[in-house]
Computed example of a mutant assay.
Amino acid sequence: MARSLPRPSRGTALVTLLVAGLLGVHVLLASPGGDLSHHYTDHLRHMAESQALVERGFAIYRQPYGEAARGLFPCPEHEWLFPDRTAPYPPLGMLLHWPLGWLERAGYLAPATAHRLMTLQWLVVALAAGLLGLVLLRPHGRWALAGGALLLMPGLVGSGANGFYDVAYVLVGTAALLALTRERPATAVVLLGLCAAVHFRALVFAPVGLWALLAAWRAGRGKALASGAVAVGLVLTAAASAAALSGTLETIPADNPVHVSHLLRGKSSPPAFILLALGVSGYLLRHRYLWSALTVLSGALVALMDRSHGYWHVLPLLVPALVLAAERPASAPPAPRLWWAAWGWALVGALIAFRYPLTPYWQWLVDVIRGHVV
Rank of each mutant, 00 (worst) to 15 (best):
A30L: 03
Y65K: 06
S31G: 07
A52S: 15
H43V: 10
F73I: 00
P83E: 09
P90C: 02
Y65S: 11
G101T: 04
M118T: 15
T113D: 04
G93F: 05
V25C: 11
D35P: 00
F58H: 13
A87H: 00
L14A: 15
P111C: 03
M94A: 05
T12Y: 04
G24H: 08
G107I: 00
H97L: 11
L96F: 13
A48G: 06
G101C: 08
I60Y: 09
V15T: 15
D35V: 04
T119Q: 08
A59D: 15
R105E: 00
Y40W: 12
A69G: 05
L120Y: 08
L72N: 08
G33M: 04
E49T: 13
I60T: 14
V19E: 11
P74T: 03
T16M: 10
A68G: 07
L18F: 11
H78C: 15
L22W: 05
S9N: 04
Q121T: 13
P91F: 05
E104T: 04
V54P: 04
L95H: 05
L29R: 09
P76Y: 07
E49M: 11
I60K: 07
H46S: 09
F82R: 12
T86C: 06
G93C: 05
F82G: 09
Y40L: 09
T119K: 03
Y108N: 01
D84E: 15
L103G: 01
P64A: 12
R56P: 06
R85Y: 05
V15I: 15
L109K: 05
P32N: 03
A13W: 06
C75N: 11
Y61A: 14
F58G: 12
W102S: 10
T41H: 06
Q63F: 13
Q121K: 14
L100W: 03
F82L: 07
T86I: 09
A106V: 02
G33T: 05
G107L: 02
A69V: 15
G107S: 01
A87P: 00
V15G: 04
L44C: 08
L36Q: 02
R105A: 13
Q51E: 15
G93T: 05
R56Q: 14
T41R: 09
S9E: 06
S37R: 09
G57L: 12
D35Q: 05
H43A: 11
A59E: 14
